[in-house]
Design a binder for these strands. Sequence first.
DNA 1: GATGATACTTTACGTCGTAAGGAGACGTCA
DNA 2: TGACGTCTCCTTACGACGTAAAGTATCATC
Lengths: 260, 260
Amino acid sequence: MVVFAAQGDARRSMALLWRAPAPEAARPGPKPALTVDEIVDAAVAIADEDGMAALSMRAVGQRLGRTGMALYTYVPSKSELVDLMYDRVHAELAGGYPVADGWRPAATAWAGDLLAFYQRHPWLLSVSQVRPVLGPHEYAVVETVSAILRGTGLPARLVLRVVGTLFHFVRGAAQTVAESRLAPGATGVSDEDWWRERSALMAEVAPDFADRYPTVVALGREDTFTVADDEPYLETQARETFRVGLGVILDGVEAAVRAG
Amino acid sequence: MVVFAAQGDARRSMALLWRAPAPEAARPGPKPALTVDEIVDAAVAIADEDGMAALSMRAVGQRLGRTGMALYTYVPSKSELVDLMYDRVHAELAGGYPVADGWRPAATAWAGDLLAFYQRHPWLLSVSQVRPVLGPHEYAVVETVSAILRGTGLPARLVLRVVGTLFHFVRGAAQTVAESRLAPGATGVSDEDWWRERSALMAEVAPDFADRYPTVVALGREDTFTVADDEPYLETQARETFRVGLGVILDGVEAAVRAG
DNA sequence: GATGATACTTTACGTCGTAAGGAGACGTCA
DNA sequence: TGACGTCTCCTTACGACGTAAAGTATCATC
């Protein structure tokens, strides 16, 4: 019984996500004044502007001139709405990266676009990834990067794994960039001041830092990478990790290609 | 003014996280019957057992025979408590991987341990990573992997980036493993049944799947990786992505080492 | 023994997701 | 034409949540 209920729910969710054609028979009752798309758009707008914490059913309803409860005619629950939001924004990501110059430039461009995408919609990063439902637009993104990496000529088994690896990496990097933007921003102080205050607190609270974490301290001292004064320190570091890390991963892929 | 308040909060948070010695003067009033550690332990137990959704101040209080409000004498807010939980569990991760056999086996072992750790505490993956505060135990993990990768002889700049890359990757892979465990588990059906039902629904709701995602379909057909009948399909796939992806990344690091 | 700080409780406020039960709009069939 | 059934959307309500405010009991100090 529970299983059947779950199955029914799964069918409903999938139909919504994949926009199965609605049964278009003439039906009694008032015409729906909203559409699922309008609701999802409003919800995305709220999340983009004020973050996931501001996303409530009542807030979405209000933005559309309705009560929160009105949405339940269109969407079975908030978590389904989030699933729809999640897939919806993935439609922004274009496909068709030119393969003429080889797979590596295409893969690099794709990863960069994905990073930028996550920054346009940082709430995506706080949507629990523990969510096995893939929607059509997220699938399209998988298709795009799969097509690019097929150009490596690697066996399918490896291509699939590399696709997963790239997703993990870009999402993780995007989280670090997002967090680096949040850190000073939250208190409204400059990046420099935040950093100085944080260091001072650290020294005060953990005076034995250098003894406990010798490698971290040594690496920090040896690191020759410098950030220009007018650039945000943490974010520049995070972007650099993205650039270099992507290079390392693609080097690994190239090694596999050469190994045949 | 706001800035000062924020600074005060930051100091309080840091002191808690880093366990700055409490002012041990004899104080009036009843002796505290709880400790911050007990509270954090109780909270971790709840999150481990029933997930992050079950973690409420009242629930933690109840587990300790108190009301939810009692916790506020020890911890300024729930989000601080989560920070403490986050750092606390990282104490489980050991350091001291043998470097005798070279950095690669050590790095592989470290990544595997981190993956297993995330599976012991899957709620870690739903703690928003947008949280720039590092605690002592998370720092210790960074120290460990930094020390391992220092063995590559790469310049500090690169080592630091590779550390970030590995973290991103392992965390992402752990999320996929966790989600693969959740998928069939939620409905209580077997992995096989879940998979079959899902495929049937997919075919029903997206009959043009093969046309829309030709590369994905082709790769799936070509993939020779097989999962034994008694193994969970999705989870085995996810673990394979971890294994292969980690190999690719470390190949990339090796390429950098060889390039000098 | 009065004073005041502290640990903890009870109560309360505003939020949330959403169940329940209308009210009015509309297609269908008598 | 009108009754009926179905639909959208509303109001109300419930039980959760984080936590502010205020009260009570406990202790060290003067």
